[in-house]
Design a protein around this nucleic acid. Structure first.
Length: 483
RNA sequence: GCGAUCAUAGUUCAGUGGUAGAACAUUGGUUUGUGGUACCAAGUAUCAGGGUCCGAUUCCCUGUGAUCGCCCCA
């Protein structure tokens, strides 16, 4: 195996099947198949259960939860700081909400939508992004009467039927910010700032912002015509896909990574040069605000984005400073026409989304700190029948008093319980044995010094509390620190 | 949706045409009431289905999944 294939194989996971189920369900017997007694599956009454979720779906294991918790905390704080209220919308919406808003011809809708018909006959789909649902709810609940801008924060799973790769799943999570009712470009700048601040607060310092303006429907139409006529004149030099795209979505050609296409698009007319007066001024002042913020950005005339509702400002947030691995952590833009399209009054709006899984991949890559919750500092060990019975009550007394206690009630020997206590790195272990249970006492063992003392159950809680306060400074042995 | 590579214990990896080993992790123990080291022991795996073969985990095909590239995006 080469290095590369090894690296790939490393990450590979096999499909597993519940064996017990298979045994009870599948009957095998020797069959004289072609005269050779091979085992053959004769009958399957039930499908065996595959120990894996469907493609592109992933479990979030306990060991990863500290990262998720960190993302939750940072994003909720950021939402508060920037004045966004939490808003949760359903995972499922009527399909045509997405068709109309995101656009029928887009990949997200055309190829990647998880759509199905309910038992009642409704055509619905799992949300492939949040904006459409939030905009729908904004209208449904008459939130247009609220003081503008109406800032809404959402987070949750998103579904796209796409081919999985690293950082790309069919079920993934987004952090989503939307602001309705403000057209001032200062809001664009603030949204971009909020997005980068959030990413950086997670410990991902090296980020770059790419921005572009794709204009409003009016100037975009003119620009599109210009672009198409340019591309048609050079069509012979484009790749196969892009020749097709001239008709369907000429803007996407600017994204093409084929050498010949990117060379052509470098010389192609750029949308920023063909904005109408309003869009041009909007973009110009946005850039001025960003300069004022000392927020580094790159104008990327080839940044297009795949959803139809975007107007004027579009942007993406990328990880990594120089070359090397870069990935889009999130993106967004203005969608001044969406609310009207859905049947509301014309309402300028802007939003962005960050991909949680991608943020976490990046956090791990740059060794950003995950969130670590409080660890128990007390372990409760029990020995003998009577003590075991009493220990349950004692545990709950400690818990009621706000003392975080670890235990291993299922274990019998004191030795194995102390081993667990040690591994958890607790400061003290409370030992309740047969003798103590009869006397109404408990042994308090200091896990650092090994010293022990006996205390009466009545005074135990106060004693433990006092000890936890005073023994704050504890020097562990080296072996203790890594737990 | 297209192309490529890969698939062995919980994890990281060995290995073989005659049903598999290690390390780490887990659990138990080293005179049954005292932890970190050491020692001993145990359990757990060839992704699924079919084919070739006396015999397949190993070779072939298909499926599934993962990874990478295209596409797209978060």
């Amino acid at each position: 195996m080469t290095k590369d294939t090894k690296a790939v194989a490393k990450k590979t996971k096999a499909v597993k099947v519940v064996k017990a189920t298979k045994k009870t369900v599948v009957k095998t017997k020797k069959v004289a198949a072609k005269g050779r007694g091979r085992k053959q599956v004769v009958k399957k009454e039930l499908e065996p259960i595959v120990l894996q979720p469907p493609r592109g779906m992933k479990d979030i294991l306990p060991e990863d939860q500290p990262y998720w918790e960190q993302v939750r905390r940072v994003s909720e704080k950021s939402a508060r700081d920037y004045g966004f209220s939490r808003m949760d919308v359903p995972l499922v919406e009527f399909s045509n909400l997405f068709n109309r808003s995101i656009g029928d011809g887009t990949d997200v809708v055309e190829k990647e939508l998880y759509s199905f018909v309910t038992k009642g006959g409704d055509k619905v789909a799992l949300r492939p992004e949040m904006t459409a649902g939030v905009a729908r709810a904004y209208l449904q609940h008459g939130m247009n009467i609220l003081s503008k801008p109406v800032k809404l924060f959402s987070t949750g799973p998103i579904y796209r039927y796409d081919r999985p790769q690293e950082g790309r799943q069919r079920e993934f999570n987004q952090i989503n910010y939307e602001a309705f009712g403000e057209q001032d470009p200062i809001l664009d700048a603030q949204m971009i700032q909020a997005a980068t601040r959030l990413v950086q607060s997670l410990g991902i310092k090296a980020v770059q912002v790419q921005i572009n303006s794709i204009g409003c429907p009016v100037c975009r139409k003119e620009y599109k015509e210009l672009l198409v006529s340019y591309l048609e004149s050079k069509a012979s030099k484009l790749c196969v896909d892009c020749k097709r795209r001239i008709e369907v979505s000429p803007l996407r050609i600017l994204d093409c990574k084929e050498d010949k296409c990117s060379q052509l698009s470098a010389a192609a007319p750029q949308s920023v040069d063909h904005l109408c007066e309003e869009c041009r001024v909007h973009f110009k002042s946005l850039l001025e605000y960003l300069d004022e913020l000392d927020l580094p950005y790159t104008i990327n005339p080839r940044l297009v984005r795949g959803l139809d509702y975007y107007t004027k400002t579009v942007f993406e947030v990328w990880s990594g400073s120089e070359e090397g691995r870069k990935s889009a952590l999130g993106g967004g833009g203005r969608y001044d026409g969406l609310v009207k399209l859905l049947g509301g009054e014309a309402t300028p709006a802007i939003g962005f989304a960050l991909g949680v899984e991608r943020l976490i991949i990046e956090m791990k890559r740059v060794q950003a700190k995950p969130y670590k919750g409080p660890k128990p500092k007390v372990f409760l060990a029990q020995l003998g029948e009577l003590a075991k019975k009493k220990s349950l009550r004692l545990f709950s007394e400690l818990e009621k008093n706000g003392i975080l206690v670890a235990e291993s009630f299922g274990r019998g020997s004191l030795k194995s319980q102390l081993r667990v206590a040690n591994r958890l790195g607790v400061e003290m272990t409370l030992i309740l044995g047969q003798k103590e249970a009869l006397d109404g006492t408990v042994i308090i063992k200091n896990m650092v010094s090994g010293e022990q003392e006996t205390a009466s159950t009545a005074k135990l809680i106060d004693l433990v509390k006092r000890k936890l306060k005073t023994d704050n400074v504890v020097v562990y042995h080296e072996e203790h620190t890594n737990i």
